[in-house]
Structures are given as C-alpha cells and as structure tokens.
C-alpha cells in the first residue's frame, strides 16, 4: 500500500466533476423549476376561470397539462436540491430570474382573469405568493453573497497583515 498514488490526477478529477459545475446545467435546473411552476399556475388559472361547465375531455386535458407542468417543477427542484450546486452568485442570478418569471406569470394570469371577468382575486393572490417567495429568495441570496464577500475581504486583509 505504501507509495501508492490516487489513480486520478487533479485535472481528471475536475473533469469528472465538470458536469455538476456546468453553468448550463444550473440554468437548466432553474428554468425547469420556474417554467414548471409558472406553466402550472397559468394552466390552472385557465382551468379555474373557465366560465361554463367543461366537457370531461377538456377537464382531463387541463389536468394532464397541470400535472405535466408540476412534474417539470419537481424535476427542477430535485436537480437544484440534490444534483446541481448553486453557489452564492448563482443564487442571486436564480433569485432575479425567479422574480422576473413570477412577475410576468402574475401579469399574464391576471390579464387572462380580467379578460374573462372571473377569478381576478385568485390570480392576484397566487401570483402575489410567487412574487413574495421570489423576493425573499432574492434578499436572502444577496445577504449571503454580501456575507461571503465581507468574509473574503477580512480573510484577505488578515493574510496581508
């Protein structure tokens, strides 16, 4: 056992880790989550604000579409929590993407509700929750990044002293 070396060099190890660190993979995870949630809210809003009773096939189609969107949201959530690391700067970017997506979705769903003259309150309520959660994520991401930057300055200063 003595004198043995790891089979993988540093570069080879980094190459193996590269898929997890790929910016595209991180962006894909964020987009899958947001598109799933926004799409789910959009389809659900269309479904709920239908003025008359719907045929069974249409009900089924709405249900399938909603489940499809939620499945994408679940996939994005799984990627972000289990597979893809979001570093401090990534979290700030992801937070802003979430906020913009929430605002656009809320405006879109509310416009549909207004056009149909029903469910405006529900659309604004659900959209408001999305926007509020996104805002919290943005504030937390900025706070975490600021903390790390401060720590970096302190440690760099300590090293130079």
């Amino acid at each position: 056992m003595n004198g043995e070396e790891p089979r993988l060099s540093t570069q080879e190890m980094l190459d193996r880790l590269a898929p997890s660190l790929s910016p595209w993979r991180r962006l894909r995870a964020v987009l899958a989550l947001l598109a799933g949630l926004a799409g789910g809210a959009f389809v659900a809003a269309l479904w709920w604000t239908e003025p008359g009773p719907l045929p069974a096939r249409t009900q089924l189609a709405f249900a399938v579409l909603t489940v499809f969107c939620l499945a994408w949201a679940g996939y994005g959530c799984w990627l972000l929590t289990r597979r893809v690391p979001l570093f401090a700067t990534d979290r700030v970017i992801a937070g802003w993407i979430a906020l913009v997506a929430s605002l656009v979705s809320t405006v879109g769903v509310t416009a549909i509700a207004l056009q149909r003259g029903t469910g405006v309150g529900a659309a604004i309520g659900v959209g408001g929750v999305f926007v509020a959660v996104s805002l919290v994520l943005v504030v937390r991401a900025h706070a975490r990044r600021a903390l790390l930057l401060r720590l970096q300055r302190e440690l760099t200063g300590k090293k130079q002293e």
Binding site: P6, T89, R145
Partner: peptide, 26 residues
C-alpha cells in the same frame, strides 16, 4: 488558507474550487 479558498469557492469561483481539490485530493 483553506478558509479563504472555501469562501471564494462558495462565491462561485471555480479556480478556488480547483485549488481545494488539488490541495486535498491526496
């Protein structure tokens, strides 16, 4: 220091992460 490298890596700096891997791989 390791601590500074970790902070830089947590901010998203891949060079710092590579340095950590290099330092602690063996």
């Amino acid at each position: 220091t390791d601590e500074l490298l970790v902070v830089r890596a947590q901010l998203g700096e891949q060079a710092a992460l590579a340095e950590l891997v290099d330092r602690w791989r063996v």
